[in-house]
Amino acid sequence: MCLGIPGQVVAMTDVEQYLAKVAVNGVQRVISVRLLADQSVEPGDWVLVHVGFAMSKIDEREAQLTLDQVRKMGADYVNEIDAFNSSEIV
């Protein structure tokens, strides 16, 4: 459960509530970017996503590294992606 998976910000969906649509492995879900409220988060940015929250901004190279790494985890990665898919934050 302590995994962080890289996601790319697609759009800010609710600026006041710090909600953003993020794509993880082709799946788009809404997450909270409130923990990055003192940084600017824009579409195209990569973030590390943990339990529906962007934990930190990362660069694209780091995102790719982490994605490769997470993919190698096999079942646990699938579980994490499934969990992400099940999310209904609006």
């Binding site: 459960m1 909270s32 943990h50 339990v51 529906g52 969990a83 099940s86 999310s87 209904e88 934050i89």
Partner: peptide, 30 residues
Amino acid sequence: FVYSPLDALKVALDNPTKHVVFFAVGFETT
């Protein structure tokens, strides 16, 4: 099972006649 505590909050909003508890665990990460 929920992915995020925000999902748990959503369950509460969707089920006004029930009380929803979220089992919060984790280090400073979570």
